[in-house]
Amino acid sequence: MSEASNIEMQNPASSKKMLLAMVSIGVISAFLIVMSFELTLPRVQRLKAEALEKAIFEVLPGTVRTEAFGVNADGNLFEIAEGDKPETVIYVGYDKNEKLVGYAVEGAGQGYADIIRVLYGYDPKEQKLIGFQVLESKETPGLGDKIGKDEEFLNNFKALDVSVSEDGKLLNKVITVKHGEKQNSWEIDGITGATISSRAIGNIIGTSTEEVVPILYEQSKNEPTVNN
């Protein structure tokens, strides 16, 4: 048990032996990796889908079923086929009576540290944003990451005005204002000490809603499948 057996001081091993060793280790490795990948894949996919679904249910309260759509260049929704990766993904949420609850939209933009990815819920009947969640951010812990935790800040998104005008444009672009200076229903009350991060959220939502909300508003009126 106690004697140590050293690597034999071989003469330069023949290249055949080296090749054999490397190849066999490679085969073992490949086998192990493929096996663990196959074993974990279903669970990983389920967890990821669950996480996304949970986020959607949170920003669209009352939703029990969702469908994912992409937006094409001329502003129509299309169903996402297998392997498609559209730039903007829209999740349509339905309640238990198969009535439309609203749309969950993913937005992204530059924050203080890195790209921030958010999900927000849009209610076309009220013409308001009704929910908001940060999906991914690397903002400074304890400071910039308040954008996902601060109750007061999150309350901004319970009823944020994104009304569409007659000519199909957003009436007022969403914007972040200084903490305590919110006056209009389309303004986001910022966070003291996290000015840049809270402004980044304003920019992300402002740009994204300006682009997507008029389309969604039209969709909710026109498309029969969505409206019933």
Binding site: S5, I7, Q10, A13, M18, A21
Partner: peptide
Amino acid sequence: LRNFVPKQVR
């Protein structure tokens, strides 16, 4: 594998 792997590629 310590006796199987040649020293050069360890």
